[in-house]
Simulated scan of single mutants.
Amino acid sequence: MLSRFAINFQPVRLFSQSVARNARFGGQGPSGFGSRFSEQTGFGFRARTGPTLKERLLGPTTGKPYIYGTYALIGASALGIGSLAYYGLGLSSERSILQNSTMWPQYVKDRLHSTYGYLAAGLGLTAASGMAASRSALIMRLTASGSILGMFATLAVIIGTGAVVRSIPYENTVAKHVAWAVHCGALGAVLAPMVFLGGPVLMRAAWYTAGIVAGLSATAICAPSDKYLMMAGPLAMGLGVVFVSNIGCFFFPPHTALGAGLASIVVYGGLILFSAFLLFNTQRLVKQAELHPHQSQYYGEQQHYGGQMEYGAFDPINAQLSIYMNVLNIFMRMAMILSGFGGQRRK
């Protein structure tokens, strides 16, 4: 009886041993039962053979984020060239800004001329300020710290000086121009560390930026007057993505997979984003120049509203600030790409 019980217990003991081995070795142990059970039923525990998601994100990058960013930039460039060809050849059924310009009164043309004159002067002041700031060791230490506190301090200076410029009416000529010059000088000081990229790189970036701005401005002028004004929502969301990615770059170095992805969004995605912003702001500038009341219209509107309507003069300094920031952002990203960003130096 005991011998029969022992014989009958043997399969149970072997089964328990096989289950223990299976649990110990994750279904891949020396027990034939676990392997056969996993193979036949598809169930069972298998040991992890690849890296975890965290290890992949924080591991070394393969360089693919930069390659994908280049592809996105090529696609956006092709779309821009196609838009310029489509609208420039007059294939659109809607009237373009260029066609409407033949009916503009002279004051609209004068407003646009003065706005782009201030834009060119502001870029010149920024370049001169950057060159002067690069010769000061104190300013270079403050602007080239590379810390997140330095980034927020830079944002505070840019936003603060810009808000002061916008708050001063254009009729207050001296204060307005002084605040505008200080704003341009502050941005030049912020961009001063870019001199480390080298003069040839910065000159090439400046020429490339000029070509991009000219092409995008021509596209905006040849397009219908409100074609790109409908992009405000997507542009705002894209700006939020680029801003958050910029903050993330302080915590994840660019040699990691996640850091490389964030850096690619900041540089390549930012270049595409601010190019689209340039289209939007160019058409918005034209709309402002067209719709802002002229002095000859004040008297009639004051009579209509009982003498309570008051308008300030058109402010070309405020009107060009958005385009000015777009140009600087495009220039910075072009300089980074041409300097060999992502290990792909442009020859």
Score class of each variant (00 low, 15 high):
Q10S: 09
L14S: 14
L14Y: 10
L14R: 13
S16R: 10
S16M: 13
V19Q: 10
N22W: 14
G27P: 10
G29A: 13
G32E: 11
F37K: 10
Q40N: 09
Q40C: 11
G42H: 03
R48K: 12
L57A: 09
G59A: 06
T62P: 03
T62L: 10
K64C: 09
L73Q: 04
I74H: 08
S83D: 10
L84E: 14
M103I: 11
M103L: 08
K109A: 12
D110N: 14
Y118K: 04
A120D: 06
L123I: 07
G124F: 15
G124V: 12
L125G: 11
G130V: 05
M131A: 14
A137C: 07
L142V: 07
L142G: 01
S147H: 07
A153P: 04
V165Q: 03
R166G: 02
S167G: 10
T173Y: 06
H183L: 13
A189S: 13
M194Y: 07
V201P: 00
R204W: 01
T209H: 01
C222K: 13
L229E: 10
M230I: 15
L235I: 11
V242P: 07
F243K: 07
V244D: 08
S245C: 14
I247R: 13
F252E: 06
S264L: 00
S264P: 00
I265G: 01
V267H: 01
Y268D: 03
G269S: 05
L271T: 01
L273S: 00
F277Y: 12
H292I: 03
H294F: 07
Y298P: 00
Y298I: 02
H304A: 15
M309T: 03
D315C: 06
P316F: 07
M325P: 00
M325Y: 02
M332N: 05
M334C: 15
A335L: 11
K347W: 06
